[in-house]
């Protein structure tokens, strides 16, 4: 858990942290689109520059970003091997043990790698600089137009925020139950298949029972404090767009513009 960086919020005081979550979410989408516009090398360098700038402005350590990419290293290596075996176009680069490796194999892998790496870096930048709750608030606001299509934007946001609120509580609970069952001789690492199934059951059943109890208590508490689903509520947390948010959005729009421009005219 300690080295798990994907999706984790880092409480730092930085420019990126002060941005409006809506601006960050929209920017992320714009950059994601830009990644998939075939704008060649120049396009990738432009997006790359924006990402480097964003990392700098987020004060996140390079080690943190490096860790975030860990899950895809294996995938990329695997991809490279497949491409080398399958792709036989382009110029032959060199030959090992009678097996010729072509330039396109390398280029193909590189293209996919860059896109994947960019996507992960952008998502990590968003999640690491935006509190989960702010993200929910931002999403709720962005979903407002969808209310016309009868999408229950507020209810979705409420569900997400309650889930986020209870994740730490349930993790604590899980650890407690693991310890309680270990005290009864449950061994989660070793044992035969049947024993393992029992071990997992001995965790899941109590966790479910307790989560159900919590849900009931919480529903009572919410209702007692005047919560009525469907009824209009105000919201304590208000988001405000600042000049800096407009600048960031503009920058991302320019990137997308450049990409489209290159794709069409070059």
């Amino acid at each position: 858990m300690k080295n798990f960086t994907l999706g984790r919020y880092m409480p730092i005081d930085s420019f990126m942290h002060t941005l409006d979550p809506r601006a960050k979410i929209v920017s992320m989408f714009l950059l994601m689109i830009a990644i998939f516009i075939p704008a060649g090398f120049v396009g990738y360098i432009t997006i790359g520059l924006v990402i480097v700038l964003a990392i700098y402005a987020s004060k996140l350590s390079l080690r943190f970003m490096w860790n975030a990419l860990k899950p895809i290293y294996f995938m990329l290596t695997f991809l490279l091997i497949i491409n080398i075996l399958v792709v036989k176009s382009g110029d032959p680069l060199f030959t090992v043990f009678g097996f010729t490796i072509y330039t396109n194999a390398i280029m193909h892998t590189l293209y996919i790698a860059i896109r994947l790496i960019y996507m992960i870096l952008i998502t990590t930048l968003l999640t690491a600089t935006t509190k989960p709750m702010d993200m929910t608030t931002g999403l709720e606001d962005l979903m407002v137009p969808l209310k016309k299509l009868h999408v229950p934007a507020h209810e979705i946001a409420m569900i997400i925020s309650i889930a986020l609120r209870f994740i730490p509580t349930l993790i604590e609970e899980t650890q407690r139950i693991i310890k309680a069952q270990s005290s009864r001789g449950v061994d989660l690492q070793e044992g035969k298949l049947m024993e393992k199934i029992m071990a997992v059951l001995s965790l899941i059943v109590p966790l479910f029972v307790s989560a159900y109890q919590r849900a009931e208590d919480l529903a009572n508490a919410m209702e007692a404090r005047g919560y009525i689903p469907d009824r209009k509520r105000t919201r304590y947390k208000q988001l405000h767009i600042h000049f800096r948010d407009v600048c960031v959005l503009l920058l991302c729009a320019i990137v997308i513009g450049i990409s489209i421009g290159i794709a069409i005219w070059l």
């Binding site: 609120r165 919480l218 919410m222 009824r231 509520r233 105000t234 304590y236 947390k237």
Partner: peptide, 26 residues
């Protein structure tokens, strides 16, 4: 149960919960 009636993400959010339900001006 103190845990199961804490609805907000923070202390301020939790105190605000009832106010939001009563449509108090943010």
């Amino acid at each position: 149960n103190p845990d199961n009636q804490f609805i907000g993400a923070t202390v301020a959010d939790d105190i605000a919960f009832g106010l939001e339900n009563h449509q108090v001006d943010p």
